[in-house]
Amino acid sequence: TVGTNIEKYRSYPRIVGETGGKDFVVAHPSADRAILKTALTRGSFEFQGQKCSASSRAYVPASIWNDGFKEEFAAEVDGITMGDVTDLSNFIGAVIDERSFAKNKAAIDRAAADPTCTIIAGGTYDDSVGYFVRPTVIACTDPENEVFKAEYFGPILAVLVYEDEKYDEMLTQMESVSDYALTGSVISGDRAAAAYTMEKLRFAAGNFYINDKSTGAVVGQQPFGGGRASGTNDKAGAPQNLMRWTLTRAIKETLVPPTEYGYPHMG
């Protein structure tokens, strides 16, 4: 819109863009299971997953996933209370509107029909009274699948289970599988592994969390913003964001100005 109206501006406009995300949680084999489960549940399904920072893809080692975590996590997700938001015993409510409901319904139906995907929790929806989509967890064996790339902006989490010894290979693949680069987190009990992951994924998330969910930034408390398709990464709430809107003027005063045009070597 700015580009098509550029002739109307006296000065070129300054733009800060903040669009969407396909935010991740990476679990290192040293991850604490309880921390991981809570980070996934809260990060993915709080506010019905309707946050640009919501966790919507997770990478979990086989040593954790196959050791009862899959069943524990699925049971927790299926136990999430959902309903009227005026009833404070409910954790989540309906998605925002019919368009959002249709988008999430289509994503669930697509995953249900995909042979590389298995719905392990949720997978149902109901618009008879409000636009309700159950929190849904999809385990997918194809790391290039749409479920790891597309932003659904709803309560849908895609999980890739990786072999523990292929941690670095997994990081390399997931770093740019999605166009977005807004938020992400690593759950790790190994400080060196957490630092390595943070460095490896330095361009994959403008806001990176260690042993926490991928959401929670509050303007004025934690600078927020991402790059790539997620926006201009101008970090709302940070001092450098203020500089984005200032007009910088350079001033030069010459105390001994020349009075002839010629240079000394010309004589």
Rank of each mutant, 00 (worst) to 15 (best):
E253Q: 11
P239S: 10
Y261G: 15
K166A: 12
A193P: 12
K252A: 11
L247A: 08
A158I: 11
S188D: 01
S214L: 06
T215P: 04
V161C: 01
G154E: 05
W245R: 14
G237D: 04
L247F: 14
R191W: 04
Q240A: 03
Y196M: 15
F224V: 13
P239A: 06
R228V: 00
T246F: 06
A217L: 01
S185G: 15
S176G: 02
M170R: 06
F203V: 12
Y162Q: 00
R249F: 03
L160D: 09
S188N: 05
P258Y: 07
L255C: 10
G231A: 07
I156K: 03
Y196V: 09
P155F: 06
T197G: 07
K235L: 12
T215F: 08
D179E: 11
W245M: 14
Q173L: 04
A238M: 03
K213W: 02
R244Y: 12
S178N: 08
G189K: 13
F208R: 02
V218E: 04
R244Q: 14
G227N: 15
T183S: 11
E175F: 10
A195Q: 12
P155K: 06
F203Q: 02
I187H: 13
L247K: 15
G225D: 08
A204S: 13
P223C: 09
G262F: 06
K200Q: 05
V218N: 07
V186P: 00
E175V: 05
N241K: 04
G225I: 06
T259G: 02
R244W: 12
P257M: 02
F203D: 15
D234N: 15
D190L: 04
